[in-house]
Write a protein that binds this DNA or RNA. Structure first.
Lengths: 209, 209
DNA sequence: GTTTCACTTGACCGCATGGTCAAGTTGGAA
DNA sequence: TTCCAACTTGACCATGCGGTCAAGTGAAAC
């Protein structure tokens, strides 16, 4: 972006504080929603005075916006797995793995994104209409090609993608419900089983393996 | 419950007003979250003075609680489809149909539920631990029986149920994203296609049809 | 050493919001 | 007709919140 020339020490402090605030904000926004979150609580969690938050992020909304964009870009990176794959077994299998890993490592971000979309995407509507639309159409083309090449069953690419998104993000967004039914947090083995189950049903469902 | 003896005319007014308020509250809570929703906005949407809301629902939280319980009971009714079915093709197929129909007819309620669970289920935790846990264990038993009878592939019942919940509710919770990608609201035909896609992938994925 | 400027922070402000209240109004029992 | 309880409603209050501000502090440039 447009980083002004800053001495390295200062810049390090800035980056560290911004990361601290973003991390705290992600958690608080996820657990309380935008309206329920307060700058004071975020400040306390970050270990900074409230006024300091407003120094780095002028308004609550600008802070929120940064949090939402962070998770979105993490997801976009997971897209890489989709592209270079020779067929659906590898491409979709790896995409499920990648998204499940993100659900495990960034559950807060996923929840913030979900809430944002449920509220009508007031701050990232433009992303939906540009970046996400392009990305989705691109993958849909790949899926249609695989179908044409006889590598998978003829399913609607969009509804398949919705199923992938829904299922993988469910493990982040509804983690509380899952953990309640599971009698506690998911272990490493539980996560492996979850990934295997999802991949098994989806891949067999689209005629692969 | 414990309805006091009330003259029929009065009771009709009461029921009508409560329904009016609940409907408005469901929409506002879904679109703004608990913290973002205001009693004033709900009152305006219901066409009643704010003080009147507090007459029927003493606090904002009690109103919210009623909204959450409403959608939960609607979902429980959809469970009926699961029980009497002779096998997974009919049982799970009908369950998907039922839940997709609910997503279409009650998108607001689904969003409120999703937000509630994402926030750690502060007001319905007991429901998760009792009603939902029992329901889930019951269906898991049915699925295991179907597997034992060779009627479907051996998949983990819980992860299968999570996939069903995630996928069907996605069409309600992420309706805004779906409509953006779709270029507008889903038509009757779109919904039919969605149901067919979901059923096709899931049923084939568990070795049915 | 001096100056400068990014950064820190406690105190403060205006406003919106959930909730209250007391004065009505209405429907129905006697 | 009388009376009571259910219901309605505008005005009001206390609180918590996002955001501001002005007085600091300390690291780097000269």
């Amino acid at each position: 972006m447009d980083e002004p020339n800053r001495p390295p020490r200062r810049q390090a402090i800035r980056q560290a504080n911004e990361a601290l605030i973003l991390s705290a904000a992600e958690k608080v926004f996820a657990e309380a929603g935008f309206g329920g979150a307060t700058m004071q609580v975020i400040a306390d969690l970050a270990g900074l005075p409230k006024a300091n938050l407003h120094y780095y992020f002028p308004t609550k909304e600008s802070l929120y916006r940064s949090v939402v964009k962070t998770i979105f870009h993490i997801w976009l990176e997971a897209a890489e797995t989709f592209d270079a794959a020779p067929g659906p077994a590898e491409g979709i299998g790896a995409y499920i793995d990648a998204k499940m890993d993100i659900s495990r490592r960034h559950p807060h971000g996923s929840k913030v994104w979900a809430t944002e979309v449920m509220h009508g995407a007031p701050v990232i509507q433009d992303y939906l209409e540009t970046t996400l639309r392009d990305w989705t159409e691109g993958r849909a083309r790949v899926i249609r090609r695989w179908i044409a090449e006889g590598k998978m069953a003829p399913v609607d690419p969009y509804h398949l993608l919705y199923m992938l998104w829904a299922t993988t993000q469910h493990y982040a967004d509804f983690s509380h419900q899952i953990e309640t039914l599971n009698g506690g947090p998911l272990s490493d083995a539980d996560w492996q089983a979850a990934k295997a189950s999802v991949k098994g049903i989806v891949l067999r469902g689209i005629g692969v393996v």
